[in-house]
Simulated assay, not measured.
Amino acid sequence: MDKVTQSAAEAVRDIADHASLAVGGFGLSGVPAVLIEAVRARGVRGLSVVSNNCGVDGEGLGLLLAEGRISRVTGSYIGENKEFARQYLGGELEVELVPQGTLAERLRAGGCGIPAFYTPAGVGTQVADGGLPWRYARDGSVAVRSPAKEVRVFGGRDHVLEYGITTDFALVRAARGDRHGNLVFGKAARNFNPLAAMAGRVTVAEVEELLEPGALDPDSVHVPGVFVQRVVPLTPEQAGAKRVEKRTVRA
């Protein structure tokens, strides 16, 4: 029942080349930065990542991107990560762009054992009709396009078939967690973290505050320990290292 590991390196010890990872976070909020750095230190390559975005240049998943460790990304936002955009447009990276709500539901469905579902999001666009560039060739032409998806009518409205997502591993960051793996996320840092935690076959959580079993109010738990296999307690310095993606202050 005690799922605590003593280091991030130990917690990601079996993540190998070509593994698939669901990673929590939105921008730089709630990003499991310590676990990502541990994956980077392992030197693994060819990773398939499912995450809302890929951090920013030099932070979060941007660290793995910059070293060419990621081969495929399923996400909803390229954002302002210039290296992400460069690799995608340069044919170095395969990218499956998914509507943000659909991505969230695909992760949740995978975690709940639901193989597929229908949604109206994307009907009438290349999301449903196919043709979205997944990978570019070096000369700028499209090498791989998304396939067309099944569309069915429910209640007189078209819906597109989307598949649930499961991954080999999931990396998440929680504000609080106990030794049994029950997790609580802080405010906006909750974002994609619970969904990623559900989708991973082996879920590793870095926690800013480690508590003993019973210390968490069951009604406050966002992810129950049944979804979590490993817990990594952070040092105060690691817990406090939170970069602001865009700092806006008065003149």
Results as ranks from 00 to 15, higher is better:
Val232Pro: 00
Arg157Tyr: 10
Val127Ala: 10
Ala33Lys: 03
Pro194Ser: 07
Lys242Ala: 08
Val232Met: 02
Ala215Trp: 03
Pro120Val: 12
Asn53Lys: 06
Asn193Gln: 06
Ile78Val: 15
Gln100Asn: 15
Lys242Asp: 04
Ala109Ser: 14
Leu132Met: 11
Asn182Ile: 08
Val73Lys: 06
Arg72Lys: 09
Glu92Gln: 15
Ala174Val: 05
Asn182Gly: 06
Ala148Pro: 07
Ala9Cys: 00
Asp129Ala: 15
Arg230Thr: 03
Val31Cys: 00
Asp168Trp: 02
Ala104Pro: 06
Arg145Trp: 05
Gly90Trp: 06
Gly27Thr: 05
Arg69Phe: 11
Arg201His: 10
Leu65Arg: 09
Arg106Gln: 13
Pro194Gln: 06
Val184Ser: 01
Gly75Glu: 10
Ile114His: 01
Leu97Lys: 15
Pro147Met: 06
Ala170Gln: 02
His18Leu: 12
Ala174Asp: 01
Arg243Gly: 05
Gln126Pro: 02
Arg135Ile: 09
Asp17Cys: 11
Gly214Thr: 11
Asn193Cys: 05
Arg173Gly: 00
Asp168Ser: 02
Gly110Gln: 05
Glu237Ala: 10
Lys149Pro: 04
Asp2Gln: 15
Ala170Glu: 02
Ala16Leu: 14
Gly225Met: 14
Ala215Asp: 15
Leu211Thr: 07
Leu183Gln: 00
Arg69Ile: 12
Phe26Val: 11
Tyr163Met: 00
Leu61Cys: 05
Leu89Val: 09
Gly90Ala: 13
Arg201Ser: 04
Lys3Cys: 07
Tyr118Ala: 14
Arg106Ile: 05
Val98Pro: 12
Gly140Thr: 01
Glu94Cys: 13
Thr74Gln: 13
Ser51Asp: 05
Asp57Val: 06
Gly225Val: 08
Leu107Ile: 10
